[in-house]
């Protein structure tokens, strides 16, 4: 579930408000977006990869919040982890040309 919008990383572009398919975020007048409907989060991690500054963290538990702290996410280098694994950078798509899934299909 979405758990963290880092106020120190966020540049208030509100892209997450726009792209979240579950409409989890609300924009605010003078700051970072807020998690307004956490319960609706489908734990798809897509907000993270669209975020240009890796300011969002979605924890792995889909049923409810884990309560993980921003300090822990930062210390474990988890911000932007999924984007890096895909090859997306600063909210831009990339890396699909290196997808080795065809090798997995052969192995299967």
């Amino acid at each position: 579930m979405i758990e963290i919008v880092s106020a120190t990383r966020c540049i208030e572009c509100d892209i997450c408000v726009k792209v979240c398919p579950a409409n989890v975020f609300d924009a605010t007048k003078d700051g970072a977006p807020v998690i307004a409907r956490q319960e609706d989060c489908q734990t798809c991690f897509l907000c993270e990869i669209y975020c240009p500054t890796d300011a969002l963290y979605v924890a792995e538990v889909a049923e409810g919040p884990t309560g993980i702290s921003e300090a822990e996410v930062e210390a474990r280098h988890l911000f932007g982890g999924y984007a890096r694994a895909l090859g997306w950078k600063r909210g831009k798509a990339g890396g699909s040309e290196f997808d080795p899934t065809h090798r997995i299909r052969v192995a299967q």
Binding site: A59, E60, G81, A85, T101, I104, A107
Partner: peptide
């Protein structure tokens, strides 16, 4: 070798493990 392809080819599948 397959472990590497799985990680690189199915990165979403590994997000829960890495985070836990």
């Amino acid at each position: 070798a397959l472990q590497g392809w799985l990680r690189q080819g199915q990165p979403n599948c590994f997000v829960p493990y890495d985070r836990a």
